[in-house]
Design a protein around this nucleic acid. Structure first.
Lengths: 191, 191
DNA sequence: TTTAAATCCCACTAAGTCAATGTAGTTTCA
DNA sequence: TGAAACTACATTGACTTAGTGGGATTTAAA
């Protein structure tokens, strides 16, 4: 049930672009994005082009160019990005909601594997289609701020960014363990 | 988040061996297993050998040979099988519980992607490590029986097998939609 | 004892994916 | 004009996936 490296790099870069945007420096060079997560630059270039073609980021060419988010991070569901890069979320084609393909089992309606994998697909989609890029950025920055770690990509002096981030509510309400890590940290912000 | 064909075929065959065992004909030839789901015979041979080496099935050689389950289906968690064939359930290595690998991000503790993928891993594991082969077999046979479809691999006349299966309880209790398809069909049998 | 039927074992391949790398070109700004 | 950055395209090597093929071995039955 792997996420490909492409997918991982795409998500990492989008999250970093979200942080950069929040910090007031939305335009980031590929080399910076690569450096932040130790990714191979040329490979990341390809991934960023794919994100650009799909409308998730915009590029600016020439000196002082770079990439920025093309939409507000609230409008980007993580599931969308994963589907673009890695294809359907479903473990097998016959339970995909967005790209259904029949399997060759004799009777889909009475296929135990299908029922099981449908549950898995729904569990995955419930997370990846629920949370947006904004949620993940919020979780990341909140946790860093809480622990006194300066946010990356701050062009201005970090303190201002930290202070700004600190305005956000703090106390993470404890909730059902079934709700997951993200939900716990987002607390009452979730949904 | 794909399940490989190997993994799919392995699970399909184990489920079929479980049904065959339930129906009183536990020993099944590879050609039969392949025919039941239209799988390539020689490829399935390899998969079955892998399952044998891992102790999930036992083989009998020679004429009238075949494969049978090596353990009671209650003792086989689906997650085990998937891990054997496809590796860890986790989408990325740094959230795997059974095969953790560090990623190269600067700070795992404050990595939003990691928190998100940890939730995904837990959601997948909550299903695949919760249900056993017996659960999936039960769901399949119960649904087939309810719909009057004869179970496969019946050597004896199908009616007897159907009658026997019909002894089992019927009414599937409706439960929280978050619990998933399998849980709903298993009803009060679950856990 | 031979033969048929099954698993077992090993090698191989064709296609695709992954993770880059290389090279050249284009745009923009100083 | 030149440096810095993105853009485009081609290629590559390693690896994985999904199979295929050919026997060797084992067992049961004729």
């Amino acid at each position: 049930m792997k996420l490909s490296k492409r997918g991982e790099y795409a998500l990492r870069s989008l999250i970093n672009l979200g942080i950069a945007s929040k910090v007031g420096r939305p335009l980031v060079r590929v080399t910076e994005l690569a450096k932040a997560e130790e990714l191979p630059v040329k490979f990341l270039e390809q991934v960023m082009q794919q994100l650009r073609e799909a409308g998730f980021v915009k590029s600016e060419r020439g000196k002082h160019g770079g990439y920025r988010l093309a939409k507000p991070p609230e409008a980007v569901r993580i599931g969308e990005v994963v589907r673009l890069i890695d294809g359907p979320l479903a473990p097998i084609g016959c339970v995909s909601q967005t790209a259904y393909e029949p399997c060759n089992c004799p009777d889909e309606a009475h296929c135990g594997l299908r029922m099981l994998m449908l549950d898995v697909r729904n569990a995955i989609a419930a997370i990846l289609d629920r949370y947006t890029l904004a949620d993940v950025v919020e979780v990341t920055t909140r946790k860093m701020t809480r622990d006194g770690i300066p946010l990356p990509f701050s062009a201005e002096s970090p303190p201002s960014a930290i202070r700004r981030a600190r305005e956000a509510r703090k106390g993470a309400a404890s909730s059902s363990p079934a709700e997951g890590v993200i939900h716990q940290i987002l607390g009452d912000y979730a949904i």
